[in-house]
Structures are given as structure tokens and as C-alpha cells.
Amino acid sequence: EVYKVKIKIERVLPNGEKVEEEITIEVEGMSEEELLALARELAAEPGVRIKEIEIEKLPP
């Protein structure tokens, strides 16, 4: 199964400015739980906050 994972994050820059970013990846052969863990890892940097995680199962 192939999933499209869209992660919206908010990053706080050293000057205090907040910037929103969106990361989209396609992943194959992982469960939804593994995808959530991967998304959290991607956003685990200091000053980064996850705003939204969207997981979509793509048709075969």
C-alpha cells in the first residue's frame, strides 16, 4: 500500500519569526502508525511544531 503523507509544520526562526512549511512524501510498505512516527521524527527539530498531519491512502 502506498500512502501520501502531508505534514504542516511551524518553525520558529532564531529571530523569533514564525514560518509555516509543508512537507509531502509518498511512502510504501508502512503502517499508519509507522507513518505517524516518521512524521513526528521529521518535525522533531528544536523550534518546530507540527500543525497538521494528513495521511491519504493512494489507489493501487
Rank of each mutant, 00 (worst) to 15 (best):
A43K: 02
P60I: 15
K18E: 11
K18V: 08
K4I: 12
E32K: 12
L36G: 07
V2F: 09
A39D: 01
V48W: 09
V48C: 01
I25T: 03
V2C: 09
V48F: 03
V12I: 10
A44L: 14
I9W: 15
E22W: 11
K6W: 10
E52I: 10
E26Q: 13
E54L: 15
A43S: 13
L38H: 07
N15G: 08
E21R: 05
A37Q: 12
A43C: 10
M30V: 15
P60V: 10
V5I: 11
I7P: 00
V12K: 08
M30K: 11
E34N: 14
E21N: 06
V27L: 10
E54G: 10
K51D: 03
S31T: 04
V48Q: 02
R11K: 07
G47Y: 04
E54Q: 09
I25A: 04
E41N: 13
R49M: 10
L35W: 05
E56L: 13
A37L: 10
R49W: 13
K4D: 01
A37G: 13
K6R: 15
P14D: 12
G16L: 05
E34F: 13
S31C: 07
E22Y: 09
E28L: 08
G29Q: 11
P59Y: 15
P46V: 07
E1M: 13
V2L: 15
A43I: 14
P14F: 05
L42T: 12
E45L: 10
R11T: 03
E32Y: 13
K57F: 06
V48H: 02
P59N: 09
A44N: 12
V19P: 01
E45T: 13
E10K: 01
E33M: 12
V12S: 15
I55C: 06
E56P: 02
P46R: 14
V5D: 00
L58V: 06
E34A: 14
R49F: 07
E22Q: 13
I23A: 02
E33P: 05
L35N: 01
E28W: 12
A37H: 08
A37K: 14
L38M: 13
L42A: 11
I7M: 08
T24H: 14
V48D: 04
G16M: 04
K8A: 04
E10G: 01
L38R: 11
A43H: 06
P59Q: 07
Y3N: 01
K57E: 04
L42M: 14
E52D: 11
I9V: 07
E45K: 06
G47M: 02
E54V: 12
K6I: 15
I7G: 00
K6F: 08
E33R: 14
V19A: 06
G29R: 09
E17L: 11
E1F: 09
E26D: 07
I55D: 00
V19S: 06
E26A: 08
E52S: 11
L38P: 02
I50N: 00
K8G: 02
I23S: 02
I25N: 02
L58Y: 12
I25W: 11
E41F: 14
E28M: 12
A39M: 11
Y3M: 04
I9T: 06
R40E: 10
E54A: 06
I25C: 13
K8R: 08
E56H: 15
I55W: 10
L13G: 07
L13I: 04
R40N: 13
M30G: 13
R49Y: 13
G16K: 02
I9Y: 10
P60L: 05
R11N: 01
S31N: 07
K57N: 04
E26L: 09
G47F: 05
E34W: 13
V2N: 11
K18G: 05
E22K: 06
R40G: 07
Y3L: 07
L13V: 04
K4P: 00
I25D: 01
N15I: 01
E20Y: 10
L35R: 02
V48E: 02
E26V: 14
I53P: 00
V19H: 09
E54D: 07
V5E: 00
L38A: 07
V48K: 01
E56A: 11
E10C: 03
E20Q: 13
E22P: 01
E22M: 08
K57D: 02
K8M: 06
K6D: 01
P46W: 05
L58N: 05
V5K: 00
L13A: 06
G16S: 03
I7N: 00
M30I: 12
E56N: 05
K6A: 04
V48Y: 04
I9N: 00
L35Q: 02
I23R: 05
L58R: 08
R49L: 15
E10N: 02
T24V: 15
I9F: 07
S31G: 09
G47A: 04
G47S: 05
K51H: 04
I23H: 05
A44Y: 05
E45F: 15
P46D: 06
V5H: 00
K4E: 03
E28R: 02
P46G: 06
G29A: 08
I53E: 00
A44S: 15
A39K: 03
E1D: 14
I9H: 01
R49P: 01
G29Y: 11
E34I: 15
K51S: 05
E41D: 14
V27C: 12
L36S: 04
L42V: 14
L58D: 02
P60G: 10
G29K: 11
E28G: 11
E54H: 12
V19C: 05
P46Y: 11
R40D: 09
E1V: 12
V48L: 08
K6C: 05
E22R: 03
G47R: 01
N15C: 04
E22F: 10
E20W: 02
I50K: 00
L35T: 10
V48S: 04
A37R: 13
N15A: 03
I50Y: 01
I9S: 01
G47H: 04
I9P: 00
Y3T: 03
I23Q: 02
E33Q: 10
P14K: 06
L58C: 15
K8S: 07
P14R: 03
I50F: 02
P59V: 12
E22V: 15
S31I: 08
E34K: 06
M30H: 07
V19K: 10
I23W: 09
I53G: 00
L58P: 03
K6Q: 04
I7K: 00
L38F: 13
V19L: 11
E52G: 07
K57M: 08
K57G: 08
R49Q: 14
P59M: 12
I25P: 01
V48N: 03
K6Y: 08
V5R: 00
